[in-house]
Amino acid sequence: METSASLNAVVEQTSTFADWVHGKDASAPVPTCPKWTLADLVDHVGSTQRMVAMLVGERMAEPSEAFARYVPGPTDSAQWRTWLTDGAAQAKQAFESVADDTPVWDPSGDSAGVPFWSRRLFGEMCVHRADAAAAVGERYELAPEHAVGAIEDWLDTMTSEGYWQNRPDFAEAMRGAGQALHFHATDAPGEWVARREADRVALEHKHTEADVTVRGPAVELLLVLSRRRPLAASSLAVTGDRDLLGLWIEHMDWVTD
C-alpha cells in the first residue's frame, strides 16, 4: 500500500477508534490485551502516532529524542476523541512533508524508514481497533485488502532483521531447519510462507508446499496471527502440523501485552 493511502486509512480508522472510546470508562479492561486498560490502549495508540510524526517530520536518524518527548494521553476520556484525531492528523502531515526515500530511522534493520513507519502505523491501527472493539463491544470490520496489508505489516515486522536481533527470545524459539508455515487469504490476494531458518525467519510471497497451511478470510488470519482471536474460535482451515502453528502463534506476542 502506498504511503498516502496508508496514512489516509490511518486517519479514517483512528476516527472510528476515537468515536468508540470517547467518554468510556478509562479503567475498562481490554480483553485482547489482558494487561491493559482502555486508557492504556488509547495512550499507546495516540502516543505512538505522535512519536512517529516526530521521527518522520523531523527526519530523525535515531529515536532517543522522540522517546524523550513522549506525550501521554489525557486521563479524562471526554478528551480522547480530540486527542486521538489530532495525533493522526499530525502523523499524516508529517508524512506529507517527506518522500519515501527521505532518511529516517528504520528499526527493521533496513534503510526505508518512511515506508516502514507508514506501514507500521497502518498495521497498528488495524489491530488496535480490534482491541477497542473488544473493549467497548463494537463490531469489528475490516476490508479484506486492508486486512492483507495489516498481515503484511505484521509478518514483515516479525521477520525483520531488527526484530530478530532485538528479541532474542523470539529468535531462539523460531530457529529451525527450514520448517515452513503457509498463510493464505481466500478473499483477497495474499499468500505468505514463513520459513524457519537457523539465523532468521525468511518470508516469501508465493504458493508452495509447507509443513502447515492456514487458509481463510484475511481478517480472520489477521486476528489469529496477532493473537486477537483464538484459532479455535475462527473459521480458518488448517492442514498439516498444528503443533508448528501453535508454536508460531505462541510467540506472536508483540504489541499484545
Rank of each mutant, 00 (worst) to 15 (best):
5 A>Q: 12
8 N>D: 13
49 Q>W: 14
75 T>L: 13
123 G>D: 00
140 Y>L: 03
198 A>R: 15
27 S>T: 10
74 P>K: 05
73 G>P: 04
23 G>M: 14
96 E>H: 05
224 V>G: 10
213 T>Y: 02
5 A>L: 12
77 S>W: 01
25 D>H: 04
253 D>G: 15
257 D>W: 10
175 R>N: 00
182 H>L: 15
99 A>F: 07
7 L>H: 03
158 M>W: 04
102 T>P: 08
141 E>H: 07
112 A>D: 09
5 A>Y: 11
256 T>I: 09
41 L>E: 03
191 E>D: 14
137 G>Q: 02
52 V>L: 09
36 W>A: 09
191 E>C: 08
252 M>F: 05
177 A>C: 10
189 P>Q: 13
189 P>K: 12
37 T>Y: 09
112 A>K: 11
118 S>Q: 05
254 W>T: 13
182 H>W: 12
34 P>F: 09
117 W>K: 15
32 T>C: 01
65 E>Y: 09
252 M>C: 10
109 G>D: 12
99 A>P: 08
116 F>S: 03
89 A>C: 07
105 W>K: 00
25 D>T: 09
171 A>W: 01
49 Q>G: 12
163 Y>H: 13
249 I>E: 14
184 H>D: 07
82 T>V: 11
160 S>P: 01
77 S>M: 13
104 V>C: 10
148 V>H: 01
204 E>I: 06
122 F>E: 05
32 T>H: 04
183 F>R: 04
239 T>Y: 07
108 S>G: 05
145 E>C: 10
198 A>C: 05
136 V>M: 11
191 E>P: 03
52 V>G: 06
230 P>H: 12
178 G>R: 15
163 Y>Q: 10
32 T>K: 02
35 K>Q: 15
179 Q>P: 05
250 E>S: 14
246 G>W: 11
10 V>K: 00
187 D>K: 01
75 T>R: 13
116 F>T: 03
161 E>G: 08
144 P>S: 07
16 T>W: 06
161 E>W: 03
93 Q>A: 15
166 N>Q: 10
101 D>L: 11
155 L>F: 09
247 L>H: 13
229 R>G: 02
247 L>D: 13
44 H>P: 00
19 D>N: 11
233 A>C: 06
221 L>P: 01
74 P>C: 10
80 W>D: 06
113 G>T: 04
49 Q>K: 10
14 T>S: 02
148 V>K: 01
4 S>C: 08
103 P>W: 07
208 T>G: 07
137 G>I: 08
190 G>E: 07
108 S>Q: 00
224 V>M: 02
172 E>I: 05
149 G>R: 03
29 P>Q: 08
27 S>G: 10
47 S>M: 10
196 R>F: 12
77 S>L: 04
102 T>A: 07
1 M>W: 11
83 W>V: 02
156 D>K: 03
149 G>D: 08
